[in-house]
Amino acid sequence: MENLLIIILVLMIIAALAAIHAKDLISAVIAQGFVGYGLVICFFLLKAPELALVQIVLETVTLIIILAVIYDSSMKEIGEPIGKRDIVTYSLSFVLVALFLYYFNKAIVGLNPFGEHTLRMSEMYVKEVLELTGSANLVKGVLWDFRGLDTLGEATVLFTAAMSVLVILRISGKKHQLTKK
């Protein structure tokens, strides 16, 4: 199973690079969809069915939103020769990648090897979720009962994001209307 996961992850990395370097935006969106649905398969293999179902819905919604955004645009990737500023950004990105790799190498020592995770905090959840919450599904029991306040915070963030989308996409402000006339 680990080998299958490795194959899917390598394909996801290739698709991510293809999405970043695609010539037009539609192919970039399709490649990004490949990464998202590969993630769904990984979730299924890692025994997280709930997460996989949610991820299918969210990925589809994201694809539709991005397609709706680029539908009215030119859909072309901006292709211009590499200038002085590009060299700065490329070198900056390589410096950042090297820095991240250095600290990742330091941090990975503290992790258990894959598949040998020990339950620490969730041991209580696994043992007592049926008695305390009455939910046979551990993830939902934790989400709605033990960590209900987290879910409340999530709902707050969702509400704020929806409100800001409404504010940003308002038909037009007063100043804009004046200049239009």
Partner: peptide, 16 residues
């Protein structure tokens, strides 16, 4: 069973 806590946190984070 696998650890339910990371899955819960990811479920929250994915929606956000």
């Amino acid at each position: 069973v696998v650890d339910p806590l990371p899955q819960t946190l990811v479920l929250t984070a994915a929606v956000i």
